[in-house]
Amino acid sequence: MNALAELQIGESLQDITLSPVTRLDLIKYAGASGDYNPIHTIDKEAEKLGLPGIIAHGMWTMGNLAKLFTPYYEDYFIQDYSIRFKGMVFLDDVVTLKAELAETDEEKLTFKVKAVNQHDKDVIKGKVVLSTY
């Protein structure tokens, strides 16, 4: 019996709230991912595009969101992970990661997932399908 087998449709995993976003978080992600788009690290470049300041890489938020499922890799792996980028994440924003079980069948669990900011506004939204390996 695995840890998620008891979860009912409509129930959620425990939310994870991240520490406020720092510039260093984004510099680290730029280095680790190879995405050096300066809009994520250099204020002037973000301002040129009419933004109040740098914004997080959408993929940084998407990468973070997947950690809701990392504790369950002994039973499942992420087969499908689809995301729509809905809003921008700025420095000092507080992002909360959420997953709700939407569908189950014998080998798969489908979750609705999203990350919201401190104003409870969706910043990314999508779906994760866990499959037994």
């Binding site: 300066p38 809009i39 470049e45 959408g58 998407m62 792996f77 992420i78 992970y81 995301i83 980028f85």
Partner: peptide
């Protein structure tokens, strides 16, 4: 360009990890 593009959607499908 690496500047000024907006990432709209991202979808991964895995056969295995």
């Amino acid at each position: 360009p690496n500047k000024g593009l907006i990432h709209g959607e991202q979808i991964y499908h895995y056969e295995r990890p």
